[in-house]
Computed example of a mutant assay.
Amino acid sequence: MTVGEAAPQVGALLRGLDPDRFEQRLYAGPVEPGEPDYRRLRAADVPVRVLPELRRTGRPADHLRALAALVTAMREFRPDLVHSHDPLSGVLGRAAAVACRVPIRVHSFHDHPRAHRRSSTSPRQVPAVEWAFARTSSALVAVNAQVRDELLAARIGRPDQYTVMPPGASLSPVPDRAEARRRLGLAEAGPVVASVGPVNAVKRLDRVLTVARAVRRRMPDARFVICGEGDRLAETVAAAEADNLAVTFLPWRPDVETVYAAADVVLLTSDHEGTPLALIEAAQAGRPVVATDVGGVAEVVRHERTGLLCDRRDLDGLCRAVLRLLGDAELRRRMGWAAAADTREAFGTPRLVAATRDLYHRLAMARGGWTPEYAEPVPMLARAR
């Protein structure tokens, strides 16, 4: 339940699926030291059963203990369906489900599994492991068409197993710009560019600093905000201070909508992405985006309609795009309005819950576990009542 794409999706399902139709249990590993806890920040109401051994940095013996704990839990709960997220949990969850003869097994890919560099599994082993476990799965969920196509190209799963299901996000009411800047301690006047997300190697915050240098040469009153935490935070802060850049660093906030509301432009500079929640949230807040055209970004940001996309190697292009938006208030307004309109339904939480419910229902019906007149479904270690 660290801050990232999977935790908000799982939280939405725990909250959104009808409790009269679904009994759910969520198992997760502990949040690692230095990582932000999504449950503490934005999902205190979501019940989680923590398995101390279920950790990415654990040893093989810890993984075996986590597997044994999951087998014990499934034998006690006797679920109709197990839905796993995250590479390690996908392996252990499906292994336990096979051992316990759980009839329906679903796994979600929030990115290509090789993108998870912190996994203890060697990159060379990933395709073989996922190939084997795909054969045990009733259905596979990909957050976008590109992730699905990359997995199929790696011979992970069959086309008929896949459902493309974009993530869903729901922001709290967005404050007005002046109030948001007051809350964050920012000057009411002057342009603000915000970057929201983990501060790690993949997100390439060094590019944000490069853009900040270029923009401030043209617009000295421009300010940049970086909201997030991660293993590259200290060096990013040091680099910003060394160049005397006007960058405000914020920790993860439960009211992330305040950060978007304070910004004129949202910037994402990643080397790789699945379907980034930060861009969905920025769009829902009515903010235009400048982003590197990687992963599923183009499925969220429509170039020249809701934002501007650049090649990840084109730093000059990123700088020009940010300057173009900061210099054209009408273009920002038009793109922000289009972004909010495009994402309201396509990437809303109700759509995610409904799509997941329908998937579970289809799988249960196919196995004779649900009658047409009763219609509706089963999640996360879920048992029909």
Rank of each mutant, 00 (worst) to 15 (best):
D149T: 13
D149H: 10
D149L: 10
D149M: 12
D149K: 06
D149W: 03
D149E: 15
E150G: 11
E150D: 15
L151R: 04
L152G: 02
L152A: 11
A153F: 00
A154P: 03
R155E: 15
R155A: 13
I156A: 03
I156F: 10
G157Q: 13
G157A: 11
G157F: 10
R158I: 07
R158M: 08
P159N: 01
P159R: 07
P159H: 04
D160I: 09
D160L: 06
D160T: 13
Q161I: 02
Q161D: 01
Q161W: 06
Y162P: 05
Y162H: 09
Y162K: 03
Y162T: 08
T163S: 14
T163L: 14
T163N: 11
T163Q: 14
V164I: 11
V164F: 07
V164A: 06
V164L: 04
M165L: 15
M165R: 12
P166S: 07
P166W: 07
P166Q: 07
P167M: 05
G168N: 02
G168V: 08
G168L: 09
A169D: 12
A169E: 14
S170P: 01
L171A: 05
S172M: 12
S172H: 11
S172W: 07
P173W: 04
P173A: 04
P173Y: 03
V174M: 00
V174D: 04
V174I: 09
V174F: 00
V174Y: 06
D176Q: 04
D176R: 01
R177G: 00
R177W: 01
R177A: 07
R177F: 05
A178F: 05
A178R: 13
E179S: 06
A180Y: 00
A180W: 05
R181L: 05
R181M: 00
R181I: 00
R181P: 02
R181K: 05
R182V: 13
R182T: 14
R182W: 08
R183L: 11
R183M: 08
L184T: 02
L184R: 03
L184P: 09
L186M: 04
L186K: 02
A187W: 07
A187V: 13
E188V: 12
E188Y: 03
E188R: 08
E188M: 07
A189P: 09
A189G: 15
A189H: 14
A189Q: 15
G190N: 01
V192Y: 05
V192L: 08
V193W: 11
V193G: 09
V193E: 02
A194D: 12
S195P: 06
S195V: 15
V196Q: 04
V196L: 09
G197T: 13
G197E: 14
G197N: 11
G197C: 10
P198S: 14
P198G: 09
V199C: 15
V199F: 15
